[in-house]
Structures are given as structure tokens and as C-alpha cells.
């Protein structure tokens, strides 16, 4: 009679491939170091380079902070990004609320409509807005045809055009981040408030809005950071009349060839992003604690 020996392994079983877990990391980390870490380090180094002598200097930074044109561009970037973040959040909220609560067959259609434009890429959508907003574009020619105006309204090549275009580009991301937050709110809270006699408006003001604040914060944050680093939409819808950091950096690198200055501008943009991200995530975690989520 055969004896079946059931031995429990004394060592934990090895992973799929019998190699040390770190070995497969060699290729991705090499790529990351060579294509990302070294270029980033070099860019930061170049920002301290002076054009004439060899010793590191803050000259380019002081040039940045004493140049009114550049500072105006930085201010435009911040204002534009704030407005875009606000518009994205305001427009995405009803859409996300509908998607979080709807059960009808329209839900899939509306979800697809809200997200699908992302596949079209930025160029197609910006081109669409150019056709609509241009001086001889769709809106202006319609208004002139009806006789309401005689001169075209300035809808593109300014803040308005850029905010409209960027809001359109970033809206799907706002919808997704609000959707996550709104889906986490228990629908029974709304129902019980309604049973107890609360009006729709009261339910929105006292239950849905407060509980979705983390989603609002993350939508605002995504809107701000994506807008501040966008290139194509400000370049096309803003043009020479509305320069932001991204388009100014591009000019420094490719036309003026002032590398230390370009590196300083890129660093300032990076610091702006990281600061916004840091503040946003701190705010989010504090809100989560407060709401016991």
C-alpha cells in the first residue's frame, strides 16, 4: 500500500520565473533613468548655468522674476487655468450626477458622448472651436447675418476662446473624477431625506454637495493642472494675442534658443504643478477625514 506523503513546503513558493524579483526591473529603470531622470536633472542644471561663465548662477531666475512680459504670461496661465478648472467642474457636475444615478438605457449613450471626444484628440476639437469662434466663423457670421452685430465679436485669440477650448478638452476628466465621488454617496441618504420632507433643492444643498466636495476638489485640481500645461489649444485659440507659459517655453526653446531661460520657465511651470498637486491632495485627505469617508 502506497503511502502518500503530503509535505507542506518549508520555503515559500517561488514566483513564476525563478529570478530575483529585481532582475526584470533593469530594463524599465534603465529607460527611465536615461530618458527621464538624466534629462530632468540636466534641465534643472541648465537653469543654473550662465551664458558666459562656468559657475552656477541664479541669473536666469532673477531675469525671469524681473521680466514683466514673462510674469504677465505666468499670471495669464494661472488665471486661465483657474477659470478652466471652474468651468470644467461646473459643467461636469450635472453630467456626473446624472451618470451616477441614472438607470435608463440613455445612461450608456450619454456616458459614451461624454467620454468619446477624448479619442478625437486635441487638434480635431480645437479645429472645431476655431471654425465656431473665429472672426469669420460660425457664430460671428450667424450673428452678422441676423443683423445683431456689424463687427465680429472677439471670440478667439483671447482668454475667452482658450477657456472654451480647454474646458471642452478637459471636461471628460472632470466628469470621471466627479463620477467616482458621486457614485460613492449612498442613494438611500437622498431617499430618506426626501421621505422626511426635504425638497430636491435641500437634498442637493445639504447632502449631495457636501458629500461630493472631495470629487469637486479633484476635478478642480485636474482641470487646473491640465490647463496650465496644455500647449496646442492655447497656441491655436490664443495665438500671439494670448501667450501662456507653455507657448512661451516653446518659443524660448525653438526660436530664441535661450536654454537657461527656457529651463527656468519649465522649472517654474513644474513647481506650479507640483504645488497645486500637493495642496490639492492635502485638501482632499483632510476632507476625507472630515467626512469620515
Amino acid at each position: 500500500m502506497a503511502v502518500i506523503i503530503c509535505s507542506t513546503p518549508t520555503k515559500p513558493l517561488r514566483a513564476v520565473v525563478p529570478v530575483k524579483g529585481l532582475l526584470p526591473l533593469i530594463a524599465p529603470s534603465l529607460v527611465l533613468v536615461l530618458f527621464f531622470a538624466i534629462p530632468m536633472g540636466m534641465m534643472i542644471g541648465i537653469s543654473f548655468q550662465s551664458q558666459t561663465e562656468g559657475s552656477p548662477t541664479l541669473a536666469s531666475y532673477s531675469r525671469f522674476f524681473s521680466n514683466d512680459l514673462v510674469l504677465a504670461g505666468l499670471a495669464r496661465t494661472v488665471v486661465m487655468s483657474g477659470l478652466v478648472a471652474l468651468c470644467v467642474t461646473v459643467l461636469a457636475y450635472p453630467l456626473a450626477y446624472y451618470l451616477a444615478r441614472a438607470t435608463s438605457r440613455w445612461r450608456t449613450v450619454i456616458f459614451a458622448l461624454a467620454i468619446a471626444p477624448e479619442l478625437a484628440g486635441v487638434v480635431l476639437r480645437t479645429y472645431g472651436w476655431l471654425i465656431i469662434l473665429e472672426d469669420r466663423g460660425f457664430i460671428n457670421s450667424a450673428l452678422i447675418w441676423t443683423g445683431l452685430i456689424t463687427e465680429p465679436l472677439p471670440l478667439s485669440k483671447n482668454l475667452f476662446g482658450v477657456v472654451v477650448g480647454l474646458t471642452h478638452v478637459i471636461l471628460p476628466f472632470g466628469v470621471l473624477s466627479l463620477l467616482t465621488s458621486l457614485q460613492g454617496i449612498n442613494p438611500n441618504l437622498e431617499k430618506s431625506a426626501q421621505i422626511l420632507g426635504a425638497s430636491r433643492l435641500a437634498v442637493i444643498r445639504h447632502i449631495i454637495l457636501p458629500l461630493s466636495v472631495p470629487g469637486i476638489v479633484s476635478s478642480f485640481l485636474i482641470g487646473f493642472t491640465m490647463a496650465a500645461s496644455a500647449y496646442a489649444t492655447p497656441a491655436l485659440l490664443g495665438g500671439a494675442g494670448f501667450k501662456v507659459m507653455a507657448t512661451m517655453v516653446y518659443e524660448q526653446v525653438l526660436f530664441y534658443l535661450d536654454w537657461p531661460f527656457a529651463a527656468v520657465m519649465a522649472n517654474v511651470l513644474l513647481i506650479l504643478m507640483l504645488a497645486a498637486g500637493f495642496i490639492g491632495s492635502r485638501l482632499e485627505s483632510r476632507l476625507h477625514q472630515k467626512l469620515h469617508l
Partner: peptide, 8 residues
């Protein structure tokens, strides 16, 4: 941001 990676 992508634009910063591009510059780098």
C-alpha cells in the same frame, strides 16, 4: 507636465 518633459 508633458511640456516640461519635452523641454528636458
Amino acid at each position: 507636465p508633458q511640456i516640461v518633459k519635452g523641454v528636458a
